[in-house]
Design a protein around this nucleic acid. Structure first.
Lengths: 214, 214
DNA sequence: ACATACATGTAAATGGTTACATGATTTA
DNA sequence: TAAATCATGTAACCATTTACATGTATGT
């Protein structure tokens, strides 16, 4: 379960309670790993039972209890073990490509709207990823990143910032690849494959039937 | 459940039994949607119960039963409905980027191996995706694609081939983006951020600590 | 006083993985 | 006759989603 490792990584930056953790998954980690509260709280309890993290109970006001978790030595060891281990990086399920594979079943205008929708959504990811990349490198950091770096010896800070920033650049780069793919898809719907493609089309004919049969 | 729609899409090309279907998920659909037999067979039964597909029982030899499924009118309608519908295209969990985010916790040589592993695996996807893209466009098709196109009116064949090929090109394009990201990662481990980056590094100093603290 | 944010969960259902189970048919 | 391929599943577990449930503290 990578959620365990995502949590270890975040708590290793700074001890937090489940509520703050779920905010982290909704904001900075939104395009890397999402997890709803209903998954976070039970997982925290499980990890505590396994000795990967430990809770400090705090009280806010008079009654409201906070359970602030921090990573144990065993937890850090497990995080390091996981990070050092190569795993299967192939994408096993890609709903966008699956939909793309059957796009010939609908009207080209409908297909174009699907591609446009992909472009709209992925653009938001590009903006977010590039913003974080820029801010981390410029040390114009979000509070959570400032805290992370403050815990490191000064010599390592640039190294750490470089790698963290690179991860967010990766999210942006992949979103850009998807945008380029969807843009090319729209072009293909309108004009068919390019003239230098493996397939030569009869001049002037548009490959654009109204509706397709099964 | 998109497995249902993946199955509808494949069976819409050509009626098949569960065994052939599972082979399709292992080969042509391997980088788009994977599904083990243990998930395929129960899903086929469920879809049959829902009226999306119907089974024709055949007997091979004297005893061995095959259940060959084909898409019903209701199934094709559902497939079309799903294809025409825009959905959330944001990647919710990306183990590669998650690992990349914590790569500062391990020795730079170990981190480089992780990036190299990503490159190796993604290269295989590029080769596969580009091969299928080429073959479909060149009509030098796999049997399954030949059958698919044979069922269409000649006028539509180029259009269909163009779109199918484009889906596989998408798998290759994304893998390429990951490779570029991992290559840049290796460069950063060795030389730190580029000189024109937002961060200026002291000349001659390498951001390459041996081991990092928690 | 009211709304918003803080805080922690449970329950049911769905989706997906891994391991196991069994036997028939074809090919070398 | 042995190995590979064809063929269809079940069971247990793990991961994820969606809906529900409850109450406290703070700011306006």
């Amino acid at each position: 379960m990578s959620l365990t490792h995502a949590i270890l990584g975040v708590l290793n930056v700074e001890p937090m309670n489940g509520y703050e953790l779920s905010q982290a998954f909704e904001t900075s980690l939104a395009w890397v790993w999402v997890a709803p509260r209903s998954q976070i709280y039970p997982t925290l309890r499980k990890m505590e039972a396994e000795g990967l993290i430990e809770a400090e109970r705090q009280v806010r006001g008079t009654k409201l209890e906070r359970r602030v978790y921090s990573v144990t030595d065993a937890g850090l060891a497990e995080l390091r073990r996981w990070v050092a281990e190569p795993f299967d990086t192939t994408m096993k399920r890609d709903p966008v490509l699956l939909q793309g594979l059957f796009l010939d079943l609908v009207d080209p205008d409908v297909a174009a709207k699907i591609f446009e929708h992909v472009i709209d959504e992925q653009r938001a990811i590009v903006e977010y990823g590039e913003r974080l990349h820029r801010e981390i490198l410029a040390s114009d950091l979000l509070p959570v990143h400032q805290r992370r770096l403050a815990r490191r010896p000064p010599d390592e800070r640039e190294y750490v910032a470089t790698l963290k920033a690179h991860a967010f650049a990766g999210a942006a780069a992949q979103a850009k690849a998807r945008i380029a793919w969807a843009e090319e898809g729209i072009r293909l719907l309108r004009h068919g494959p390019a003239a230098d493609s493996a397939v030569k089309r009869p001049a002037g004919k548009k490959a654009r039937p109204r509706q397709q049969g099964g």
